[in-house]
Structures are given as C-alpha cells and as structure tokens.
Amino acid sequence: MAADNLLQKDRPAIEVRNLCKNFGDNEVLKGIDFHVDQGEVVCVIGPSGSGKSTLLRCVNRLEEPTSGTVLVEGVDITDPETDLDKIRTRIGMVFQQFNLFPHLSVLRNLTLAQQRAKKRSKAEAEEIARKNLEKVGLGNRENAYPAQLSGGQQQRVAIARALSMNPDMMLFDEPTSALDPELVGDVLGVMRQLADEGMTMMVVTHEMGFAREVGDRVVFMDGGVVVEQGDPKEVLGNPQHARTQAFLSKVL
C-alpha cells in the first residue's frame, strides 16, 4: 500500500490521452493529450467553443468521454469498475455560475457533501467548514444564505465548499467570468493563495494576468485540439502559432 502511494506520487495528477468527445456529430474534442503534474497550476485558455469546459468536465466525468483515457492519480476514471463518487471527492470543482445550493445556509453548503459522501460527523464537518470559510475570508457569514451574498462571496463559498472535501486537486471553469469586475480580485486572491500552498490546479480562464503570474504552464486550445503549451511568459509573450497569436491579440 505504501509503495503504491509512493508510485502514485510520481504520476501526474491528471493525465489525458487521445481524448475525443462528440456531441452528436459535433466533434468537440479531437484527440487531446494533456496532463497536470502534482502541485502544478495549469491554465487553459482559448476562444469560446474551443472545448475548454468539455475537457475540464471530462476529468471528473461530468461529461462522458467518447474515446480516450482519463487518468486521475493513475486511476482510469472511464473504467466502469472505478468508484466515481469516491474519485470525485478528491477532485474539487468550481463552476462559472457558483452553483451553491440556494436552499441551504453557507455552513450547510459546506458540510452536506462531507457528511453524505465522506461520512464525516456533523461536528467534524462543521469544524472543517469553518476553517475553510475563514480561509476564503468569510468566517462571519456561515449563517447567511447564498442569495444574501455578492457574486464574489458566493464564488469564495463555492471554493471553500470544494476545499472542505480535502481534495487532492481543484478544477476551475472560468471562476470569475460571471463576476462584476470589482469582485474578481477577491476570488483570484483566494486562488493565488491556494496555488502558493501547493494545490494542484487546472484553471480554465480568460484572466491572462492570473495565467501569467500564477500559472506554471499555459495550454492554448482551439477547435478541440491543444495548439500550443508551455511556460506562461513564453506562450503569452511570444506565441509560436498563428492561431495563438490571433487569439492573444484579441484578448490582451
């Protein structure tokens, strides 16, 4: 068992091989090879409709891959024998639209899955939840309901909710795209802190500043393929591909 764990440490946190995904006859992912190493922060950028969300959602199988392999810490998540619910507790996910549970208080949002999926006691779940609310700067809002919070606060609660499962890695799908500009900074600040603590992160984003400063690697996708990837300063500062150049000239 111990040897097993050691072996897994060498493996990438996420490894995607030749991943294809079709929606009907719409080929959205056309043979993606992609990985995120342990402790690495990978930012995925690209034009709208290029398949960034689809790739991210295939990692925890919210989307069913059409073909190819997705390994999470060495475990093939497309294998029917894999306990998907258990794997998912190790992969935190943050959505563009926050997706907090509107009928539950902030604290309950954070404890529900801990109790249901991790079988933690209420007391333990609440202790962990409070610690994570503190961490995202919302320690005083545990009794609020999501509708009473600003977008930025809701997204930070959503991050705290994902963290409360003690995941090994975090997936972010445009976490700041639905926010008013003045609220973006708080959320990016929390993500930056997570990165500094060594969290493995896959971040789909349009925030080029974040990608440059926090990302260890940037992956540029277009038309369902990875066009270019590498050091953020290289890819963003000196893109090699015409499509990357065209995209960056529009967003920078």
Binding site: N60, D85, R88, M93, L100, A117
Partner: peptide, 13 residues
C-alpha cells in the same frame, strides 16, 4: 442542471 452537477462533483451519489 448545475445543482445536480455541483452535488455529483462533490462525490454525492
């Protein structure tokens, strides 16, 4: 749909 996805992504069955 995002509600169901959020719950499933947290590992709830």
């Amino acid at each position: 749909a995002g509600q169901r996805e959020a719950a499933r992504s947290l590992g709830m069955n």
